[in-house]
Design a protein around this nucleic acid. Structure first.
Lengths: 338, 338
DNA sequence: CTGAAAGCGCTAACAC
DNA sequence: GTGTTAGCGCTTTCAG
């Protein structure tokens, strides 16, 4: 690394103190116009750049928000990050993004690094593995603002922003029922995850509201969300004596897997089987038949999350800040598959 | 922000100097076992955490790589970032991700922030707008290792990693020709971008190698890569007296737009028209008919990029490091659309 | 083996 | 208006 120019160098060049240079560079009102201009000029000539780390060390604020998501490789997450960035950027904050890759171990490490790097706040969506939240409680104790989004933990008393999964799931299952379906299967994820549990409960609630039987055979739990797994899951469902006439999938990607198999098996969609997903990934619009789904306002969730944590960061008294939980309702998108 | 525990606090507690604490914490060999254990014990009890910024300030290394991409919202970019992370993480480096959102202005700001934050290296894929590379030359002059990936600039003498666009485009156009197509249209992006130019040249080269006419009417340039724009572009192509019998699209997303319109217009794929994309986004596999495309090894590009810049960062002498340019060949994936 | 002191680059009291 | 001094949290000579 090349030696970089510091305020010391400028001070020496101009025969003034570093304090003066520091003040001039930040355009402090107590510095004369002449010195300011002189400092600016030399700074430019010498190609001076302020060291942000040194500043953060003093100000105890790095103007950085840390974001931890399971992966940036799925639209929901990348969109919500874009939402976070859009508001953070406007307020002069940078965003540091990390992927836990659904690993608890990695999540813990990341949180530790972030906390030790003086980020001003952390926004986190838990990994699928995460069951223990000591790492979060720990940094909260250290006084670091933390906000949970989407993959949250109810027990933690913190601000939270997430999709209304119960509502979303109930809405789309109701839609299937309105379409005349009576034997609705569900392909979902591990119920230990709040999201999975909520969507499952929404599914159940829609059934019972409509006096439809709940059949355990029609519920499949898979842990890795990919098309192959859901294809497999659906194949099993289709082997049943009592076949479902609709499948509601926890996530769009799973619905895609079901769709693929249906084609293989010659099942006509939606005549023989209705399919519904969750998330409104681009892909649901372009496959044929296109897939009905719930649109999650991912970008807005990110924006809201960022606004909330920035408010928390900038609240003078810790006392006057109250943790808020925002539950965002997703929208039903009806397409050809139902 | 709560007051945090520092080595000073530990030192006071144990009646030793901060130097001793510092050494003990880093398990230095010149400290006795007893003091080490005592320090560790108290550190744990007091819930001490090292301030990474303070360390970076001294070591002049933050163990952070900065990554700048146009967006994380497309598979190619999120995958390549995952590739970068996977190797960085193993070597003890963190990755800070930024999105330029295709804005030159924002890209410049980001690069400045990164440079001033003592990141150990910067990996950048230029925004579509970027034509002037002074911001890069500038930080290179400051001694910061920079690597260009995918959206590179030939004039810059730096390490580069990218897809072999000329080869890829030529390969898939050749494939269309082998399939008997003679009137191949091209929907691409602004030729000022190297990627766009290279793919365009590959297209031309394939045509001329096969003694097929190059028809300017069959070439459309669009600047915003989305399905609507490519749908529009294709509609125009289809109004021509002399219609194409195949369309090669610069990116998969554009191919999706063409596919959508073809359905509307009742064009049979691939009978009346063959479609080819570039990128092998998941979606190309799931639409119907599925789309032929070139698979870009995005994850590998990221890995390679990270390895290269880490090598540069860790080369003692600046002299003994030679900038490398790695061009990765994409693979042809033939599907139903051609 | 351990401590004192200087310093990374910058800011902030407190003088004058 | 500007300089002096101290210090953010940590590491690193240099002594002893």
């Amino acid at each position: 690394m090349k030696k970089s120019i510091t305020i010391k160098d400028i001070a020496k060049e101009l025969n003034v103190s570093t304090a003066t240079v520091s003040r001039a560079l930040r355009n402090s009102s107590e510095i004369s116009k002449e010195t300011k201009q002189a400092v600016m000029k030399i700074a430019k000539e010498m190609d001076y750049h302020p060291n942000l780390l040194a500043r953060s060390l003093i100000s105890k604020s790095s103007k950085v928000l840390g974001v931890v998501v399971p992966t940036i490789n799925r639209q929901f997450w990348s969109n919500s990050i874009s939402g976070i960035e859009s508001v953070a950027y406007k307020k002069g904050y940078k965003v540091m993004i990390f992927q836990s890759a659904e690993s608890y171990q990695k999540e813990v490490e990341i949180v530790e690094i972030l906390a030790n790097s003086m980020v001003d706040g952390i926004l986190i969506a838990f990994s699928k593995e995460t069951q223990d939240f000591a790492h979060i409680e720990h940094i909260v104790d250290r006084g670091i603002p933390v906000l949970l989004f989407e993959r949250v933990c109810d027990a933690l008393q913190l601000s939270k922003v997430k999709t209304d999964d119960f509502f979303g799931s109930k809405t789309i299952v109701n839609h299937l029922i309105e379409r005349g379906r009576k034997k609705i299967a569900y392909i979902g994820g591990p119920l230990s995850l709040t999201v999975c549990m909520d969507r499952f409960l929404g599914y159940q609630s829609a059934l019972s509201d409509n006096n439809l039987p709940f059949n355990q055979d029609w519920v499949v739990e898979i842990s890795d969300f990919n098309t192959d797994n859901s294809s497999e899951a659906f194949k099993e469902l289709w082997k049943l004596e009592n076949k479902p006439d609709a499948v509601f999938c926890f996530a769009d990607i799973l619905a895609i897997g079901v769709l693929a198999v249906s084609k293989e098996l010659g099942i006509k969609i939606p005549r023989d089987l209705a399919i519904a997903g969750f998330g409104n990934d681009d892909i649901t619009k372009y496959v044929s038949p296109s897939i009905s789904t719930m649109a999650q306002p991912s970008f807005e969730i990110g924006q809201l999350a960022a606004r909330l944590i920035l408010k928390e960061i900038n609240s003078e008294e810790e006392i006057d800040f109250i943790y808020k939980t925002e539950i965002i309702k997703p929208n039903l998108i009806v397409r050809e598959s139902s």
